[in-house]
Amino acid sequence: MVIPHDENTKTVGSPLLDDGSSKISCREVNVYYGPKRAIHDVNVDIAEKEVTAFIGPSGCGKSTFLRCLNRMNDTIKGCRMEGLITIDNENIYDRNIDPVLLRARIGMVFQKPNPFPKSIYQNVAYGPRIHGLARNKAELDEIVITSLKKAGLFNEVKDQLNHPGTSLSGGQQQRLCIARAISVEPEIILMDEPCSALDPIATGKIEELIDELRQNFTIIIVTHSMQQAARVSQRTAFFHLGNLIEVDSTKTIFVNPEHKLTMDYITGRYG
């Protein structure tokens, strides 16, 4: 199914927030891989300290768009972004912005847990150390312990902090990656299908963790599981063929979406 981009790109629902709750604002965002346009004129606001879910069929552009938010696409050859993305009204593509410092503000958790080949302690301590967040060992210890606690992992690993991170189970490794992401005190956490490699128990733990983390962080999660989007997010954005079709409260998207494409997708009529 091909949508004529010129006619049908206006996002329905409530993509823009005019109540001052917006943390990230995206305007007229287009992303190209070489000559191919992968994202078409996306306009959306992401609310602060909420979980926003990106859903849509494979290849719809949700991960590409997610990677624009911490400039991960900069590292992909041939990938080009047009438009404006601001965080707290600051243009993150401004030439004065250091992408490394930006990514400290915007943590990321990937589909497959990817701990460093180091100890559990070193996995979490690495970020704070290179960003100079701890003045001494005691402060670093404190950051590691607090991050592991916030990630709901500390009690399970407190006696084995020197063991390799890779010795943990898949679910624990993913929580270690979350601990690593939050150890540098980011404002935003991007999660790209963080549970797709996990069993239902580990998934449940990550979902509970996401719910706790939203007290302090703005979270965006890309997920193929609509049940997961429904469980963890407050707002949901539906992408289709590079267009942002609809954004609204999660309840509206899953009970009474406005756009037929959204309805077809969530009811499994295609995709």
């Binding site: 609509m226 009970v255 979406p257 309805m263 009811t267």
Partner: peptide
Amino acid sequence: KQPMGKDLR
């Protein structure tokens, strides 16, 4: 089936 949208309704 965990229906959603109009199927749920």
